[in-house]
Simulated scan of single mutants.
Amino acid sequence: MNIKINFLLPGCILAQDVFKLSNSPLIKKKTVITPHHIEILKLFLVKDVHVEPKLVNGKTFMPKDIINEKNNVQKPLVKKRENKTFIDLYLKAVQQYKKLFTNWQGGTKVEAFSVRKIFLPLFETEPSKEELMQLHHYSTKNDYIYYHSVAVSILSYMIGKRTGLENAEVIQLGLAGLLSDAGMSKLSFNVFDQQSQLTSTQYEEVKKHPIFGYRMLEDVPGFRKEALLGILQHHEREDGTGYPIQVNSKKLHLYAKIIAIADVYHAMTSERYYRKKQSPYKVIASLKIDQFGRLDHNLIETFTHMMIDLSIGSKVRLNNNQIGEVIFQQVKYPTRPIIKLDDDSHIDLTKHVDIVIEEELI
C-alpha cells in the first residue's frame, strides 16, 4: 500500500525501494522502519512510500488513509480479510516465541505443547524460495534473537526435507532449530542489550548456552534425544573447533550439522548492533569457501540449491546498484553467474569478487 509519510510508523516494512536525487536507493525495500528512517525521509522531503500490509510484529497495519495509485488521491483504508502468507505466519511465530522466551527468563519451564503450537503452522505451510530469501530482512536489532530462532527453525526443517528425512524427524529437527538458542534465556546478563562486541568473560558464558538449552529440555516430554543433540551441538564444527565440547564430525549429529548451517547463514544476513547484514548470495558463497572444513560440505550444497534458483533470464541487482540479466549459470559457482547489464556490457562475477548479487528482482 502507498501511504503518506505522516502515517508511517516504526515497525512498518518498505515494499519498494525509496529513491531521491540519485540512482541508489535512499532506503531499500524490506527495510524495517525505525524513527531514524522516518527522520531521513522527512529530511529528504519524501512525501509517500509503499509499505507492506503487515507490521514487523505480525499485526495488520491500518493507517487512516492510503493513496489511490490511479489518481494519487487519498481514500480511507477498508479493512478486508486476506489469506495469510508464509511471512505473516513467520512474523506471528516470532511474537509467540518472544513471549515464551521472556517466560523462560523468568523461570518458567519449557512446555512442548507451546513450542509445537508455534512451529507446526510454519511446517504445514511450506515457504517459496523467494520467501526463504526474504526472511533475513525482517530481523530487527532489538529483537534479533526471536527472529533468528524462528528463521533457523524454518531453514533447518527445509534442509531436513531436502535430505529425505521422514516427517516425524523433520518436525523434531525444526523444534530443535527453534530452541537452539533457548539457553540464552539463562545467561546472567542481557546479551540482547549489548550494542558492542562481548567481553571475553561474557563470550565464555555465551558459549555455554547450548548446555543451558540442553538442560532446559532433557526432562521435558516431547523432545527426542536427537533434537537435544541438535541443540547441544549446533555450535560444534566438523574440524573440532566449535563449542561447548569441541567434538568433531565423527560425533556430530545430523541435526546439529543442519542447524549450524541455518544458524550461520541467518546470523550473517541479519542486521546486528555490531555487524551489518550481508547479501544472502555473498553469505552462501562464503559458507562454501570461508567455512570449508568447518561445516558439512554436502549439506551446504543442499542448502545452496534450496535457496538459489537463478535461471537464465533472471533479473538481478548487484551491490553496486547495477541491474542486469543472468545469461549463463556457472554450475560450480551458482551465486556468481555471467550477467548482461542494462548497458549491454557483460560481467562474469567469478572474476569480480568484490561484486555480488544483492537480490533477484521479481
Score class of each variant (00 low, 15 high):
residue 243 Y to M: 12
residue 340 K to E: 12
residue 295 L to I: 09
residue 39 E to P: 00
residue 20 K to C: 15
residue 21 L to Y: 12
residue 283 V to M: 02
residue 223 F to R: 12
residue 215 R to G: 04
residue 188 S to L: 01
residue 102 T to W: 01
residue 228 L to R: 08
residue 186 K to P: 09
residue 334 P to E: 04
residue 91 L to P: 07
residue 96 Q to S: 14
residue 252 L to F: 10
residue 162 R to W: 01
residue 208 K to S: 07
residue 275 R to T: 01
residue 340 K to S: 06
residue 21 L to D: 15
residue 28 K to G: 02
residue 111 E to I: 06
residue 194 Q to M: 10
residue 291 Q to D: 07
residue 310 L to T: 08
residue 283 V to Q: 05
residue 115 V to T: 12
residue 150 V to W: 04
residue 69 E to L: 13
residue 110 V to K: 05
residue 151 A to I: 01
residue 269 T to K: 03
residue 63 P to R: 13
residue 124 E to T: 01
residue 142 N to G: 09
residue 27 I to R: 11
residue 337 P to I: 05
residue 120 L to Y: 02
residue 21 L to F: 14
residue 134 Q to S: 14
residue 36 H to R: 10
residue 84 K to N: 05
residue 256 A to G: 03
residue 10 P to H: 01
residue 162 R to V: 06
residue 93 A to P: 14
residue 136 H to F: 11
residue 284 I to D: 06
residue 213 G to F: 10
residue 260 A to G: 03
residue 239 D to E: 08
residue 65 D to R: 11
residue 208 K to C: 09
residue 236 E to M: 05
residue 150 V to Q: 03
residue 155 L to A: 09
residue 81 R to C: 00
residue 1 M to D: 10
residue 330 Q to I: 11
residue 3 I to M: 04
residue 21 L to C: 05
residue 290 D to H: 08
residue 234 H to D: 00
residue 27 I to L: 14
residue 268 M to A: 08
residue 16 Q to D: 15
residue 56 V to L: 01
residue 41 L to W: 13
residue 9 L to M: 07
residue 75 K to R: 13
residue 82 E to A: 02
residue 257 K to D: 04
residue 273 Y to N: 15
residue 15 A to M: 07
residue 3 I to N: 07
residue 291 Q to C: 11
residue 145 I to W: 12
residue 89 L to A: 01
residue 81 R to I: 10
residue 351 K to P: 02
residue 328 F to A: 10
residue 327 I to K: 15
residue 34 T to N: 10
residue 351 K to A: 13
residue 72 N to S: 14
residue 201 T to A: 15
residue 149 S to L: 06
residue 181 D to M: 03
residue 66 I to L: 12
residue 285 A to N: 08
residue 169 E to Q: 14
residue 52 E to G: 01
residue 297 H to L: 09
residue 332 K to M: 07
residue 88 D to R: 02
residue 131 E to K: 08
residue 23 N to D: 14
residue 205 E to F: 03
residue 256 A to D: 04
residue 341 L to M: 05
residue 260 A to H: 11
residue 122 L to C: 05
residue 261 I to N: 01
residue 287 L to K: 11
residue 293 G to S: 10
residue 164 G to D: 08
residue 213 G to T: 10
residue 154 I to A: 06
residue 323 I to A: 06
residue 134 Q to Y: 04
residue 216 M to T: 03
residue 294 R to V: 11
residue 274 Y to Q: 03
residue 2 N to G: 01
residue 222 G to N: 08
residue 119 F to Q: 01
residue 281 Y to I: 06
residue 308 I to T: 13
residue 201 T to C: 04
residue 221 P to T: 08
residue 234 H to A: 00
residue 92 K to W: 00
residue 14 L to V: 11
residue 296 D to T: 13
residue 234 H to E: 00
residue 68 N to Q: 12
residue 59 K to W: 00
residue 352 H to M: 02
residue 229 L to N: 08
residue 309 D to R: 04
residue 243 Y to F: 14
residue 89 L to K: 10
residue 222 G to M: 12
residue 19 F to T: 04
residue 328 F to T: 02
